[in-house]
Nucleic acid binder design. Structure first.
Lengths: 341, 341
DNA sequence: CTGAAAGCGCTTACAG
DNA sequence: CTGAAAGCGCTTACAG
């Protein structure tokens, strides 16, 4: 039988209340008494039943997810995943609230985080914007003992407890490596479509991509980055124009969103041969394009995994428990049309 | 406030015991009474607190994992993951027992499964062997109400509740597609190293591989399969000999285990150019070979994910709860040296 | 067929 | 500084 608080109380010769005080590090116990209880705990190899404790406390974890009201497929999918978690959460003693903020707006994000400072939820997950003000509130939240997880986009060199997202430099490197191999070392020109070079994720992916190409495929030349602002319309125009100007574009790396525009441009183009295309995020449109052979490979981050991981980590941090690193690592999925889920 | 059994009892005008009987579908309740309770339940939107129920029942889930005592790195890793789960399990009301069986021995597997029929654990996970006797015991277990999950290797057309493993045909197809692309449509010869064509997983991978190549890369020719029995020594000999005979081997697909031997053979070989190599399972040796450029891509199944998934599913089945399909799908990871975890 | 009471392992006022 | 008692939401003998 697993030892319980009753066993501890009996052995230490104290009451349950005192055992509880020691167990939870509450003050008001003489150190001799505390010692007796601690001895009993270790001698019994006691490990407490969290579920029973939560029941007794009527504890429910209240978490807040702050998401940008961005309207690309990936962010919409992320929203859906969080909403799914909200629905399931009732069964798991968690209450999850979603707060939408305007995208790319550090001020708005900071404002919301500040209100949470007063509200004191059991944990906060948010899609970070890499700015000093954000780092500053993050620190205040951490100092207030509120666990923080960054989601999809990280806040490096900050006090956040965990990052639930992919390594974007590695993602870019992977794209570069695939591109180089698929082009099989031929002399070729490659275009890059990004959202904005102001966004850290995009900068990192480009960095990884360029490095991988430069190191291993010197025959592959990268054109100046097209910044489509993650907008399908703008992306379409830019890609169409690039293809018109450069008939010899052999590959395109789309490292941001707005892939619907890219796909339209590719479908309308009729150059001598179709360029090799590597894009990010598996959505309805990239999936269809992959099946049709318009896109050759998709690098993906599993939004569902990211959300579930963020919740698990927040709960663990709230309980002061360790996290299982292997379970929480978000991998860079590579999808060809052959291994589509 | 979430409604509780007390609320139901009050509204239905019955005792807690009766509420409990209805809630758990136990007999001995007049249908009028049952009706009143059911009405109260739906009108309140009651959803029961599983943790509290488990506490009251002192319920602990006892699961059994049956693993082949195979000594390749993947199976050793799988063992380790299960052992890790055993260690953590105490905190989660689960007790997991590991039973080792001789590999490739349907009789031994059946014998163990039969003992479990009497023992009645809350769930069983096992690496299946595709044989009629196995299917037969599986059915008896299912009929006895014991949830079954197949792990890594499936038992198709059987009564198993769930399969925690990858789609091996898709894995083979993915390997074929990568091979074809990496060879970029040049006229070339490719060797395949398997463990044994008697193993279903290996047959399926080969099938997927051959199909993908035949459909999209008619210039790529596949040599007769080498069966290395997942043995490093034998695999090394076979690969070395194949390379000697066929100086023009441009690619090797290693779809089974025994990769240490393959790697040794590749390192010792000094043909005009290194063949392109795609292997399965990320282990210490394939990881090193990937970094060194001896292997070009590794397809992987995450043993940790498989084990955690199997446990989650067994628990859900034991509780009659639904599983989250997206969370339990085991993907085919593709690793290049650029996205190694 | 139905109910009162005790208990699962922990926590929380409250009293002393 | 310490303890007795009640309670979290559910289940389980036991009695009737």
């Amino acid at each position: 039988m697993k030892p319980t608080v009753h066993d501890i109380a009996k052995i230490a010769g104290v009451s349950l209340a005192t055992v509880d005080r020691v167990l939870n590090g509450r003050p008001g116990v003489r150190s001799v008494t505390r010692g007796k209880v601690e001895d009993a705990i270790t001698s019994l190899g006691y490990v407490r039943d969290l579920a029973a404790a939560n029941l007794a406390k009527s504890r429910t974890y209240s978490f807040v997810f702050i998401l940008p009201a961005n309207d690309n497929s990936f962010m919409i999918g992320l929203h859906e995943e969080v909403r799914g978690a909200v629905v399931r959460s009732s069964a798991e003693r968690t209450v999850i609230r979603i707060i939408d903020v305007p995208p790319f707006d550090p001020g708005a994000l900071v404002a919301v985080l500040e209100t949470l400072l007063a509200e004191r939820p059991a944990g906060v997950a948010f899609v970070a914007i890499d700015a000093p003000e954000v780092r500053a509130v993050a620190r205040r939240l951490t100092e207030a003992g509120i666990p923080i997880v960054t989601l999809v986009s990280d806040l490096p060199d900050s006090s956040r407890d965990h990052y639930a997202g992919i390594d974007n430099i590695a993602a870019g490197r992977t794209a570069g490596s695939l591109m180089g191999r698929f082009l099989s070392g031929r002399e070729s020109t490659v275009a890059v479509l990004a959202g904005s070079m102001l966004v850290r994720d995009h900068r990192e992916r480009l960095e990884g991509f360029s490095t991988a190409i430069a190191q291993a495929y010197p025959n592959v030349h990268i054109l100046p980055v097209l910044e489509g602002r993650d907008d399908p319309g703008l992306s379409e125009t830019m890609v169409a124009e690039a293809l018109r100007r450069n008939a010899d574009i052999a590959g395109i790396y789309s490292l941001g969103a707005g892939n619907r525009g890219l796909i339209r441009a590719l479908q309308k183009a009729h150059g001598p041969r179709r360029p090799l295309v590597i894009a990010h995020e598996l959505t309805a449109s990239t999936r269809a394009a992959l099946s049709d052979g318009v896109i050759d490979a998709v690098l993906n981050q599993d939004a569902g995994h990211e959300v579930r991981s963020a919740i698990r980590v927040l709960k663990a941090k709230a309980d002061g428990l360790p996290v299982l690193a292997a379970q929480e690592r978000i991998r860079i999925d590579i999808f060809l049309k052959d291994n589509l889920p």
